[in-house]
Computed example of a mutant assay.
Amino acid sequence: MSEFATRRVMMVDTQVRPSDVTKFPIIDAMLSVPREAYVPGDKREAAYVGENLDIGGGRVVLEARTLAKMLDALDIQPTEMVMDIGCGLGYSAAVIARLADAVVAVEEDAALAAEAQRLLSVEGVDNAAVVTGPLVKGAPKHAPYDVITIQGGVDTVPDALLTQLKEGGRIAALFMDDGVGTAKVGYKIDGRMTWRPLFNASAPVLDGFAVQRGFTL
């Protein structure tokens, strides 16, 4: 077993399983996808550290625990289509691709998007495609989606994304409030969103997902 494969097993055994993530498809996906392949070259050694991994531009790869617990709550099925917002270099899309029928990953940084698509192709992930465009706009061309994931912090989730969620669909997002974050899963029922808190975690708020606060004395 390679050194990175050993670290991958350790990541699952020390970060994922102890967080009450027991669904086999998620464990299998996290054991199978080489996290080190989807980070900048100078960050490969840090790929399996139990915290968010900075990939530049205020963006991170979410720590394994956060991603796994979100996926656990979403319970993605093999027949479902998922939109992955802010895929960075493609790690989350690669993991989700092992759970879903297809993944549409959205990335607004053109260089990141191109590299993510290249890495996914190199790794043989043929059911995930990267779309370049504003994260807040999603990928309406391929909507509606059964599930939406957001790979970073948010103050709010734009209606433009929620309208792309199928009736009965689910979305997971990490809501930040003064540096403290709560992951929540939202369900679309009768056209309205119902949110349920899951667990505490944190990540930088993505561009366009911050609430514009008025200036007051």
Score class of each variant (00 low, 15 high):
M10F: 07
M10Q: 11
M10P: 08
D13F: 04
T14M: 10
P18C: 11
S19I: 09
T22P: 00
P25D: 01
M30D: 03
L31M: 11
V33H: 04
V33I: 14
Y48W: 08
D54C: 07
G56W: 06
G57W: 10
A64F: 06
A73V: 12
A73F: 10
I85G: 04
G86P: 00
L89W: 04
A100N: 01
A111D: 14
L112P: 11
V122M: 11
E123V: 07
V125F: 12
V125W: 08
V131G: 05
V131A: 12
T132H: 00
P134E: 12
L135V: 02
K137P: 05
A139N: 02
K141A: 14
I148W: 09
I148K: 12
T149I: 00
I150N: 04
G152K: 05
T156S: 00
T156C: 04
P158F: 01
D159I: 11
D159L: 09
A160L: 08
T163K: 13
L165E: 14
E167K: 11
G168V: 11
I171P: 04
M176P: 02
M176L: 11
V180I: 06
G181W: 01
G186Y: 05
G186S: 09
K188L: 13
K188S: 09
K188Q: 13
I189A: 08
D190V: 00
D190A: 14
T194F: 15
P197K: 02
F199A: 11
S202D: 14
L206D: 03
G208M: 02
A210I: 01
R213K: 11
